[in-house]
Amino acid sequence: MLDLFKNLPKVPEEKFHAKFKLLKNSLFREKAILSDWVKDFVDRDNKIVAEFQENFHSSFWEFYLFAVFSELGLKVDFSHSSPDFIITYPERILVEAVVSNIKDGGRAEQDRKHEDILSMLIPPHQVLDFQEVLDEAIVRHSSSIHKKWSKYKKDYSKRKHVTRDEPYIIALGSYDQVNYGREFVYSMMALLFGLYYDPLADDYLPRISIKKPGTDSDIPIALFNNDVFEDVSAILFSCTMTLGKLTALANSEEKSGQMNHVVNVRQISAEPTYSIKSVSPTEPEHLSDGLFLFHNPYAKNVVDKNMFGNTNIVQIFLDGDQFRFEGNHPPLFSRYNGIFKLPEEFLSKIVRAFNRLY
């Protein structure tokens, strides 16, 4: 059993990541949930605990993915060092995990303030820096995807235990800026399909490139609109996989006790378009909420959508110039996780703002 919190430290305590210290010292129910996720996880190179303590996000993302795969009943072969997850049952799929981090010199995560937390409850059409946030996310995600695509072509595909007829998924966790939790799917819809969301028009507009923030450099987008990335079968993505996920799962339990106030914004198909509710045993958040699987229409090896059908993962397909969302539950748009309980009248105002009911 992988132990993340005993027999410490693997690294000097002064190097502990702030989120690791918070989990270790204060978030006891959340710590228990995470420990349950990793009980069958195999640390193949004996480095992941130290990585978790010092850098946090990349290891945390892998632990979460393993928990989702385990809940699905997928079998993972840990006998090879890479890719990160070799799923062998019910079908063979390769999954490589990667995270997008804040750029060098970018605003540091420890600078997050209460207004940043509250920004998760601001609708896109009222976000003054929406395009800036979106473009920064696109650039950071493009770099991460290109890195793992190149790794597959130059390394993984040449290994004896890898064949060229099995799907290859890049699992991307977004931690690209302080307020990464309000990206929803907009960054990936633009980067993968060239569909750039305009919040004022409330519509996706076709684009083939964006300007890298602060420069005149063009960044190509619409990566899945031709066969260049045919080796990448799909992108599994989330921008809501943070400590708030653990607290949301804890608040969803029958005997959760007093914890942070967690509020979920969900996008629903019927009018009004958005639902905003406090997370509780009667309005729970599930493990796979917040995950999106973007299928590559030009993939050489197609992912069977039924592999992930019995979850709350939302699967996204592009058919010609039309896209469709398939899922069992309304997608998680964003999440507020704060120590202050928000009054119902405030949440009612947020509902009206999201649904443009003035």
Rank of each mutant, 00 (worst) to 15 (best):
S150Q: 11
Q315W: 04
K39M: 06
F69Q: 07
A248E: 14
F60M: 10
F333D: 02
G309T: 09
D321W: 00
F66E: 12
E132L: 10
Y64S: 05
P213K: 02
K160W: 09
D321R: 00
V228M: 10
L293E: 00
E283K: 11
F52Y: 05
L172N: 03
N306S: 13
V232E: 08
A137P: 04
K341T: 10
D3C: 06
V133E: 12
N25E: 15
N312V: 03
N101V: 15
A108M: 12
D3R: 06
N306H: 13
L65A: 12
T242V: 14
F66L: 08
T247R: 11
Q53I: 08
H295C: 08
L4D: 01
C239L: 02
D165N: 15
I33S: 01
A67Y: 12
F354L: 04
K211E: 15
F294C: 08
R352W: 00
A250V: 05
P284S: 01
G320E: 03
I221F: 00
F237Q: 01
K39G: 05
L8H: 03
T163R: 15
V38T: 08
E13G: 12
Y89T: 10
Q315N: 01
A234P: 12
K300C: 01
L249W: 05
F224W: 07
G327N: 00
E344S: 13
H261Y: 08
I117K: 09
H17S: 01
P343I: 01
M189F: 06
Y64E: 00
G106A: 09
G320Y: 01
V95Y: 02
L200I: 15
I219G: 05
K19G: 14
K103L: 11
E183C: 10
M307Y: 06
F130D: 07
V76I: 11
S269M: 06
P297R: 02
F317D: 14
T163E: 09
R140T: 11
K39A: 11
V185G: 01
I122N: 03
G105H: 02
T240C: 11
Y186V: 06
D319E: 09
I235V: 14
T240K: 05
D319A: 09
Q322S: 06
I276V: 03
E62S: 10
M188K: 03
K158H: 13
A190S: 06
L191N: 02
F229M: 15
H125A: 03
E136L: 11
N179H: 06
F69P: 05
A270G: 08
L121C: 11
L8C: 10
D155S: 15
F52L: 01
K24V: 09
K349M: 13
F193R: 00
I268D: 13
N179A: 13
S26Y: 13
S174H: 12
K211P: 09
D84I: 02
D111S: 08
H261A: 06
I102H: 07
F292A: 04
L249E: 13
D203N: 12
V262G: 02
R324H: 14
V76E: 03
F354H: 06
V262L: 06
H125Y: 11
F41A: 02
N25C: 13
C239R: 11
G244E: 12
N312S: 09
A201S: 04
L293F: 04
A67V: 07
P297S: 03
V351W: 08
A250L: 04
G105V: 01
E109P: 09
D104E: 14
T282N: 07
V42R: 11
P199N: 05
V38M: 04
N296G: 03
L246A: 03
L223G: 00
